[in-house]
């Protein structure tokens, strides 16, 4: 969801879901990004399931809310509750685990079906520090990502590789999507691109709201 800020400078608020099988390193990825720590016993945050990050991209402020999801198979059906209204999805797999890549494919299919093209997808091959045990080939992964309109990234939370780029890139893409959406609405006055329940109300009449009190009396 994008929200307008005061003055000319806009503040974007984005919701990003982290999807992927358990043990592929979702949590490590996000902890590395937000706290710059890996496997650290001194992590200050109590939890790594909901993290926020404030960014400044080309003069625009961005508030990123990163939602971790439970990766266990038995919670798979709960996915839609998590990714509803999200602007971006990071689909993580373990390059040493073919199954986890298969899971990502399932997620992509589901997301495209439920949310269409409004959502920015990132497919992330994590644990590139274990490249010698690689089971998912780079070519296969990248060509698949391209075929579904997603971007592919190689990361290592352990070595802190490719993570900053991943999030920065995603933010830019989400901003583009948000801007495109605003342009599509073609109304400069309505700065709040509310996609709440798909209902868009453009209301310039300030007295329209209290009229609710009169409706029943008339």
């Amino acid at each position: 969801m994008a929200a307008s800020g005061a003055g000319g400078g806009k503040t974007y608020s984005f919701k990003v879901v982290l999807l992927g099988e358990g043990c592929v390193g979702k949590t490590s990825l996000v902890l590395r990004y937000c706290e710059n720590k890996f496997n650290d016993k001194h992590i200050t945050t109590l939890q790594a399931s909901f993290l926020t990050k404030k960014l400044n991209i080309t003069g625009k402020r961005v508030n990123l809310a990163i939602w971790d999801t439970a990766g266990q198979e038995r919670f798979h059906a709960l996915g839609p509750i998590y990714y509803r209204d999200s602007n971006g999805a990071i689909l993580v797999y373990d390059i040493t685990d073919e199954d986890s890549f298969q899971k990502v494919k399932n997620w992509v299919k589901e997301l495209r079906k439920m949310l269409g093209n409004e959502i920015c997808l990132c497919i992330v091959g994590n644990k590139i520090d274990l490249d010698k045990d690689r089971h998912v080939s780079v070519e296969e992964a990248e060509s698949y990502a391209e075929s579904v309109g997603a971007k592919h990234y190689h990361t290592s939370a352990k070595l802190n590789k490719g993570i900053e780029e991943l999030f920065l890139d995603l933010c830019k893409r989400m901003m583009e999507t948000a801007q495109a959406e605003e342009r599509l609405k073609g109304n400069g006055a309505s700065q709040s691109a509310s996609n709440r329940r798909g209902v868009q109300i453009v209301d310039d009449e300030p007295q329209a709201t209290p009229a609710g009190g009169c409706c029943s009396s008339g």
Binding site: T27, L46, A70
Partner: peptide, 22 residues
């Protein structure tokens, strides 16, 4: 928050969604 606290005490690491939801 209390749940996270309980997980942190038990596991001695920050709770992920994998821990939190169950």
């Amino acid at each position: 928050k209390h749940i996270f606290n309980a997980i942190k005490i038990s596991k001695n690491e920050a709770a992920s969604a994998d821990d939190f939801l169950p």
